[in-house]
Write a protein that binds this DNA or RNA. Structure first.
Lengths: 251, 251
DNA sequence: GAGCATAGGTGTACGATGTACACTTCGTCA
DNA sequence: TGACGAAGTGTACATCGTACACCTATGCTC
């Protein structure tokens, strides 16, 4: 009953603070997320916030968990073949959430205190993969490589200075024109990339899907090998018990 | 002649400032990297730094480029099969550099102003792949997916609260013991992961190599398809000219 | 309804940070 | 030698997170 959904009185609540913080960060970026600015948005004095969050760090923890809650959890697959669309959809959904809240990239997986939505999300992922027949270790591998890819891609995406494929062409062109000739001679391959971008553009979505499909294909190939072996859930692990570390060099 | 390599006089230089900043950030983390602390380390008043760097942002740009210079560039492959060890070694080297400078994770690819070492690094990567026969588009794909993976993995690695496989077991065990029973019932699969970690440990290096090999294997499989097609360097692009976006759902 | 405990909002204040601006100092070369 | 300019100094200010003491009004008990 002590919720903020009570009539129109000017009471704050933890949820209201978190929601306003999310909106502020979406609008102004992480640098604009200031306790003072947040208080101003809420029509309240800065110190009032501290009645609802312990400090700014805990505030950010809460914001990050809201973003996690926006990521659609993969459904546990009854059919062994359904892990792939489920994982693909989750990866896309995660990227979309990161795209809606760019400030969260680099914070999502860096936070030390995972919230309930984060836990639920990973629980669903584990469950989906285990039910699809993946061994325990393989589940960890798939989660690790997929999450790493999505985070890393979102991170790269943030740093590129254009927002759309069309814009990428224009910007690439003018960057290219601004280069002195000597630089062009030093970095021929980079110049090639930039000039290609200038004519053809760069499509984030297509690039993301290419990499995602590449990884999912590779997992599908390894699935038989990763299904029953190495599962050893009830058994005691052998000493060491690490995944065989394949050498990098040989193909 | 106006270098800092002059005799033992107490003159600063841009390089000295950057080196001290790197060392400070390595020791104290990014939160400890303060203009005042940096000045203290150099035995100088804070404002003296501004004679050598424009502001803190430019300082960080310089630091990031030093980290890039520590990443071993892949050698251009004469043999078509050498792209794989070269890319693998570069990925490992990049991860090692990020491990040496944890503060740099999340800054490396987020910085808007790439430095010369960054450009040289990517130039070498492009060159290595192009010489190995990859088409222009394929080169972009490989670079994108590999960099995303390495960044993302380093990001995840930072957030996990243990440093070694042995320690991971202990910490996982005590986290497990600290959970109320109801939580265990809500997240059975997560509990499984934690308890497995408690007995078997978690080996970052092995996990990283597993994902890296998975990706490199997948690229190797696609190499024939990605070799000559779609190269179209001299030709005009077709309208649109985006990579065909494969659907996610079907395997 | 009266009275009051207390959750929630306020005001002031402090130390830390990045850096603008005006100054002093000192090495270098005419 | 003398002065010019690059390098280092000192002071100052706006902005940040947040500690602490203080009010206030909401809702519970009788």
């Amino acid at each position: 009953m002590s919720d903020e959904s009570r009539a129109g009185r000017r009471r704050l609540s933890r949820n209201a603070v978190l929601a306003a913080a999310l909106s502020l960060a979406d609008r102004e970026g992480s640098a604009g997320l200031t306790m003072r600015a947040l208080a101003r948005d809420l029509g309240v004095v800065p110190m009032a916030l501290y009645k609802h969050v312990a400090d700014k760090d805990e505030l950010i923890d809460g914001m990050v968990d809201i973003v996690w809650s926006e990521v659609e959890a993969p459904v546990a697959a009854a059919d062994q073949s359904l892990w792939r669309p489920a994982m693909g959809a989750r990866a896309v959904s995660l990227r979309q959430a990161l795209g809606r809240h760019p400030w969260a990239v680099g914070l999502m997986e860096t936070r030390m205190h995972p919230g309930p939505a984060n836990l639920a999300q990973h629980e669903a992922m584990m469950g989906c993969l285990r039910r699809a027949g993946f061994s325990f270790r393989a589940t960890v591998h798939v989660t690790s490589v997929l999450d790493a890819y999505v985070y890393g891609f979102a991170l790269q995406e943030m740093s590129l200075p254009f927002d759309s494929a069309e814009e990428s062409g224009q910007i690439a062109q003018q960057k290219l024109d601004a280069q002195p000739a000597e630089l062009a001679a030093m970095f021929p391959y980079l110049i090639e990339v930039v000039s290609e971008l200038a004519t053809a553009g760069y499509d984030y979505d297509a690039e993301f899907n290419t990499g995602l499909n590449l990884i999912l294909d590779a997992v599908e190939v390894l699935r038989p090998e990763w299904s029953r072996t190495n599962s050893r859930s009830p058994r005691r692990p052998a000493s060491g018990a690490h995944v065989q570390q394949r050498p990098i060099a040989p193909s």
